[in-house]
Amino acid sequence: MTRLPSFRAILIWAALAAALVPPIAVAVTSPLLAWREPVYIVAGFAGVVALALLLLQPLLAAGYLPGLRAGPGRRAHAWIGSGLAAAVGVHVGGLWLTSPPDVIDALLFRSPTPFSAWGVIAMWAVFATALLAALRRRLRLRLRVWRLIHTTLAMVVVLGTVIHALLIEGTMGTMSKAALCALVVVAVAKAIFDTRSLILPARGKA
């Protein structure tokens, strides 16, 4: 007999949709798109998608999403992590095609816009996180150590991404973008707090 999803589960998924749909809808209907070429539009949206995926990661890691807890949740976390790294790659690659000198300035930390530096820091942290996840077995790190590094990198990703996003005047609406960024920060903080016994070095008692 298959169980029907509980009211609580429906509520959680609806809340997640309510958090993600408005900022994406605002970006899709931005008047700025009319004056951008396709590669720039794709690059911009890859950034929006990456920010949206970033909200899912702590929720999956800590097992907050009904139907995606434990094993399935971890697999979804890994898949979305790959998607996140790919979205960042499309974002930076598309911007490079749109205006090479601006992206080179950003990558070399000599851009006049401070948000570029935060974006580049977040990018390297995303790539490092993905690499660490891909090499997890081969690295033979103790699980607790691996989790500590992974979580630390994740915090850099979130901090860099949120500052990067908030300082940009782009297709996302100011209010919906700020709300999404606040949710990402709260989700990460709660997930880390709730899973701290798995991350922090074991105390004497254990």
Binding site: S99, P101, D102, D105, R110, S111, P112, T113
Partner: peptide, 8 residues
């Protein structure tokens, strides 16, 4: 000269 001034 400003940073990024000569871009494009």
């Amino acid at each position: 000269t400003m940073r990024g001034g000569a871009n494009n």
